[in-house]
């Protein structure tokens, strides 16, 4: 037990160190390179009106915050869904929840933009949440008929395709001026996020994270299966509802601001569990948040810099790193019978 505890501490420290390193690297990397001293000066002093100041303060820093918050939220959302379906390859992207949110958001965006109104954060999150819940509703209906977990994931992928197809139709018929923006977003990107959005996402994800963390006790019980969880005193109905709402809010918030981001929700919880060698939610929920933040910062760094000045969509990068992990899990995971 003591050994486990020191392992947790070491793993947390490792994640924090990685996070710090990636934050510094992300601030530094880009078309305008800055020295450490300059960055420190920009961070500590009030505005001096210089371009460097603008780049760091209004472009890079909010983008970093967004990557940290959204990456963390997405991983935790994945962990919650995996708990809910008792399935290690469940996640907001493969179950079509992100795509549902994407569809709703793009419809709202297009209809508002065509009337000349820019959609506010609240409207976007609201739309994303509705879209996410719609996909979730379908998945829940299907999960009552389909007992094999792999089939459920296949159904989720199909729902994702349907939603993406409708989104593509909508984008095709949208007015030209909106398309560029919409197209970038619908591929998944952390670009174009400013402080006001960061404040909103911090509030939403902060609350959802806190609630998730305080669910760690029933989540731990639920990992033993529904029957035992109920016998231990978990109110199953309320608990399942809470899990659905929280995971949907988290992935909806991510989709509203950054579009659909693939595989983070599966890959990060798996990596984190392997690193910590436990699935105890009280450890894994905060660890997933940190891990997701690290993973997304890293992927965003690559998205921004690999083919600079062209930016790759974040989803492509997370897919490159995340999908192999998912394949590995499907092929080698213990308890495969469950899939």
């Amino acid at each position: 037990m003591r050994r486990a505890r020191s392992r947790y501490w070491a793993a947390f420290l490792l994640l924090l160190a990685l996070l710090a390193a990636l934050v510094v690297w992300n601030v530094n990397a880009g078309s305008v390179s800055l020295s450490g001293a300059e960055i420190l000066r920009i961070l500590c002093s009030p505005s001096d009106g210089s371009t460097e100041y603008g780049i760091v303060r209004t472009l890079r820093l909010p983008r970093i915050c967004a990557a940290v918050l959204l990456g963390g939220g997405l991983s935790v959302s994945g962990f919650l869904l995996q708990t809910f379906f008792a399935n290690p390859i469940a996640g907001p992207f493969v179950l079509g929840i992100s795509s549902g949110a994407k569809l709703a958001v793009s419809l709202v965006m297009i209809s508002l933009l065509s009337r000349g109104i820019a959609a506010g954060s609240a409207a976007l999150i609201g739309a994303a949440f509705l879209g996410a819940m719609l996909s979730m509703g379908f998945i829940l209906l299907i999960s009552q008929r389909v007992k094999r977990m792999s089939m459920l994931v296949v159904c989720g992928v199909m729902i994702g395709y349907i939603c993406s197809a409708i989104t593509d139709f909508a984008v095709t018929f949208a007015e030209d001026s909106n398309i560029v923006n919409l197209h970038n977003w619908s591929m998944g990107s952390f670009s174009g996020i400013y402080w006001d959005s960061v404040a909103v996402m911090a509030a939403v994800i902060g609350i959802a994270m806190a609630l998730s963390f305080f669910l760690s006790k029933p989540i731990g019980a639920y990992q033993m299966g529904e029957v035992y969880a109920q016998n231990m005193g978990v109110n199953i109905r309320a608990f399942r509802l809470a899990l659905i709402l929280l995971s949907s809010v988290l992935s909806a918030c991510v989709t509203a601001f950054a579009g659909p981001i693939s595989f983070v929700g599966i890959a990060v919880p798996h990596l984190v569990k392997s690193l910590f060698r436990t699935a105890k939610p009280i450890v894994i929920i905060p660890a997933c948040f940190l891990g997701g933040a690290v993973f997304c910062l890293f992927c965003d760094l690559i998205a921004r810099t690999a083919f600079a000045p062209t930016e790759v969509s974040i989803s492509s990068v997370t897919a490159v790193f995340g999908a192999p992990i998912v394949i590995y899990m499907m092929a080698f995971q213990r308890g495969k019978s469950n899939l």
Binding site: A86, G233, T278
Partner: peptide, 24 residues
């Protein structure tokens, strides 16, 4: 039951659930 990465002691310990606090 298919608990992930749980030792037998962890599994037995889940029985203490009704007696632990908010965080379990």
């Amino acid at each position: 039951v298919h608990p992930e990465l749980m030792t037998c002691r962890d599994v037995a310990a889940t029985g203490r659930y009704p007696y632990t606090g908010k965080l379990g």
